[in-house]
Amino acid sequence: MNLTIVLQQLVNGISLGSLYGLVAIGYTMVYGVIRLINFAHGDIMMVGMYFAFTGIAMLFLPWWAAFLLSMLASALVGVIIDRVAYKPLRNASRISALITAIGVSFFLENSFLVIYGGVPKAFPVPSVFGGAINIHGVIFPNIAIITPIVAMIFLMILLFILHKTKYGMAMRALSFDFETVRIMGVNVDLVISMVFAIGSFLAALSGIFWAMRYPAINPLIGIMPGLKAFAAAVLGGIGSVTGAAIGGFIIGISEILVVALFPSLAGYKDAFAFLFLIFVLLFKPTGIMGEDLERGRF
């Protein structure tokens, strides 16, 4: 394999990894504040894709407006899911909330199946993201270059919010001590809603870029990337935003490299993240950036 291909594959892997990373952030933040694996989170990707699809192909909005509206609408969907389905179960046993989460996931998948049908839809890719550029004879698709840049910008904004704003700090504090934050007079429910909004916004962003990468969308499309993003979140250390982003890159790059180096294993591509997850649980269950969230339980 020559250097050109390695470079191409690396860019490709970084691009894919940043998509996983964006979704992983939502998993990790929600788990951090309410200790819930939000199974519906991968499906929010799908929701974002269909909203953007509707905006461009059915409402004939300019692409940027459709994208932005889709992300905002997805954020709203995330908040509504929390308020309607998860909030009533805040004090119930953990298993009740998890069962509800899987119910929400199934609901999203199937209601979109009912609305849009099961036949895959062609996602209209705006021309800006279409072409490819040629750098010294190496050809990169535009989308592969743009994706990680956009992802980095949003990651920076998120880190700024988390560390420099009052509500961002409240989000971080929540993952350590629910009661203290409540006593300090922060509106805990508002903070949790914001976490869902941010997570869903980023998942929709990731979904839209996913759809431009693989422009055929169906209602079950969010499941697999959702699962891989979860593996990324665990790998990065659940609860850590930076860890989630790094975990995303690792999973994305290794997925691309495994397929490039061992083409015979290409069929098993989707089994790969699962193996990753098992290995992480076996050897480094707290992840690479993780703090043990369970500490001080007594």
């Binding site: 009533p88 069962i99 509800t100 998948e109 009912v114």
Partner: peptide, 18 residues
Amino acid sequence: IPGMRMVVFSILLIVIMI
């Protein structure tokens, strides 16, 4: 309507849990 049965099931599950 294909998928309607599963929508009914998922709503049922969420409502019972809540």
